[in-house]
Design a protein around this nucleic acid. Structure first.
Lengths: 207, 207
DNA sequence: GTCTATATAGGGATAGAC
DNA sequence: GTCTATCCCTATATAGAC
């Protein structure tokens, strides 16, 4: 791996492990056994590094959100879809942990993240409406819109919530599937009896 | 106001306005027209100031959460109750904006905040169960537990969500009532027809 | 591309006079 | 209780040699 890519790679890992504010450019250089000067040859600032990482995140999350080839009519599809979303979030979790601070500092990041959030809401709404048309869920328009909103909020802040509430050494993978389960339970009351059972099966399988 | 209290007061205001990481002890002293040395005479560290502010927050939120004299059977009571919760959160919003970072830095704050979160979940559950007993809402045990969880998460991160999603100059008071409305809409699908109408009235009244 | 050395700046915190 | 002066440390970032 070239130095330039390796910086991005190492920075992302350290940001996720220690939290962005606790990781200095020197730490990153140290961890890679290169000099701070070398790091600044490749990127002009710490924020530049963060911005490049963000662009990678943006590409991945947009790719997941624009998956149109799957028909989200089955509970398995829903579970899989949520799993993909939560996986990208977990991979770039430092962005979510210090979201407000980062948006505050970097105006372009703020604008781009807002756009992604809007996209997330819209996608959730599309899926919910699709499910309603297929008869998989039973709810009026207002309830569906509310659910979509709620899903966007929950996927965005679930990680912070679980950090705040659980012990730190709580298994990372479990936090993920707990998040999926949490979102599914929001939808559960509006499912048909048959789909509720499928959901229960999936729960015991993954939790 | 004595200097000692005034420091707390000024620090809280600046933390809320600028974000805790962007406010230095010098800023606080400057804003009050006292010297940095004077500030450190009253508090031994910046974290000490934050801790004292947190203790005030803890007292208020616990007081609100332990209100047992009200019977949460009417929608008006629910609205009022949520308003009180969101008001305390708004008053100490810097705690919520930089929650993870603060918990990471201050271990006692982490433990206390966790306890408050648990209390919040429990209170939400109590109210939901009470409403179910009174026949105000219709839902099975699992749905009620899920709702309570969801309310705890939403009240905790609504502010961050609205900061992330809305324009910065969006009216503070409106963010608050939007949060209340958002939580109420989560409960709405399980209300009786009569209470749904009351909720709609309240919405047009406050939004 | 990479290194060493260093500039620059700012924040937290203390000493000692008044 | 309050001030001035200052120390210490760390972080971002640059200059210039190799």
């Amino acid at each position: 791996m070239k130095t330039k890519e390796k910086i991005i790679h190492t920075a992302l890992r350290l940001f996720n492990e220690e939290g962005e504010p606790n990781v200095t450019t020197n730490h990153i250089a140290d961890e890679m056994d290169i000099s701070p000067g070398n790091l600044y040859y490749h990127y002009r600032s710490k924020d530049d590094i963060i911005w490049q990482i963000f662009l990678n995140y943006e590409k991945k999350i947009k790719h997941v959100l624009s998956q149109q080839n799957v028909n989200y009519t089955s509970m398995e599809d829903m579970w899989l879809y949520l799993h993909m979303v939560f996986e990208v979030i977990a991979e770039y979790r430092f962005l979510y942990r210090n979201l407000i601070q980062l948006m505050n500092r970097m105006d372009f990041l703020k604008r781009h993240f807002r756009h992604i959030l809007a996209l997330k809401s819209q996608t959730a709404l599309n899926i919910m409406q699709h499910l309603a048309q297929q008869g998989a869920i039973k709810a009026d328009e207002q309830t569906i819109a509310s659910l979509a909103d709620q899903i966007a909020l929950t996927t965005t802040f679930w990680l912070n919530y679980s950090i705040a509430i659980y012990d730190d050494n709580f298994d990372e993978e479990k936090k993920l599937s707990h998040g999926i389960f949490h979102v599914m339970r929001m939808v559960a009351p509006f499912l048909t009896e048959r789909d509720k059972e499928v959901l229960d099966d999936l729960s015991t399988q993954y939790l």
